[in-house]
Nucleic acid binder design. Structure first.
Lengths: 140, 140
DNA sequence: TAAGATATTGATAATGATTCTCAACAAGGG
DNA sequence: CCCTTGTTGAGAATCATTATCAATATCTTA
């Protein structure tokens, strides 16, 4: 498996727990998950796994580039597998639903920044809030 | 004062503590501040003020539209007075310095979303990370 | 395959930020 | 000046996340 190679090539070990966490993320691709959610599902694959291990695995996966942190500006961070295609989310302030936004104009913006400033952009995060189609009518 | 009117028109009262918190933000316009930082400076103006009151004032100011929350994706939230001109930050991953980014292409992006989806965007947040000019050479 | 060096884990304590609780207090209209 | 009601401060409570540390699991080497 790809994960296995990435781990060993950096001196990390493949464990039952890491496999479990990764599989949970993979089975929920495209859905940002909290550590606590991952824990519940990972327990089915690796009984006894603790929350600390989940946090450690998530952090490691981000470092390895197989997962990414999604900032939804909630109390807790969210994580999802890195499928390679960059996207952002539109969050409904009414019902909390999230829609993926595939169009990414960041590349354009980064070019402008490259031309006009001395700052080298290596990553970015875009969040959009508003009302989804279901909540629009009432806007309650 | 403007703040005074905004408060009373909504049934809120003007207090020594709220004035202190607002003044601190105003004196640090353009610099996102943590609640704890605000507390230290506000104590000079309103001795005895507690952290809970600072949080309450900040939350209220955002609601009134005189301050805005700045998501820097750090452990704690940051706040700054709403000067009316929209901007974002470029954060140096090396030294942590922050530069304001005045160019905002979000309006353009929001138009695209309006045309292509059923989502009504009411607010957004853009964060950029990378290396500032001072850290670029070494990139350490 | 057994052994050993060391990476990893789980339980739990600790931390940091933020919110809640509630009795004492203060603002401002009448 | 009084009274109603919004506010405050102190500290407890909560939530997410990180640190600690002894027990355990991995993987490499002999």
């Amino acid at each position: 498996m790809e994960l296995s190679r990435r781990l060993s090539s950096r001196g990390y070990r493949r464990t039952r727990q890491r496999d479990a966490v990764f599989d949970v993320l993979a089975e929920n691709a495209g859905r940002p998950m909290k550590a606590e959610e991952v824990l519940v599902l990972a327990k089915e694959k690796a009984p006894g796994i603790g929350i600390a291990t989940v946090y450690r695995a998530l952090e490691l996966f981000v470092e390895l580039g197989v997962a990414q942190q999604v900032h939804l500006h909630e109390r807790s961070q969210h994580y999802e597998v890195d499928t390679g295609h960059h996207h952002h989310y539109m969050v409904c302030v009414s019902c909390g639903s999230r829609e993926q936004l595939d169009a990414c104009t960041m590349d354009k913006l980064e070019d402008v920044i490259k031309d006009e400033t001395d700052f080298l952009v290596t990553s970015h995060c875009l969040g959009l809030w508003g009302y989804c189609s279901s909540c629009l009518p009432g806007k309650a």
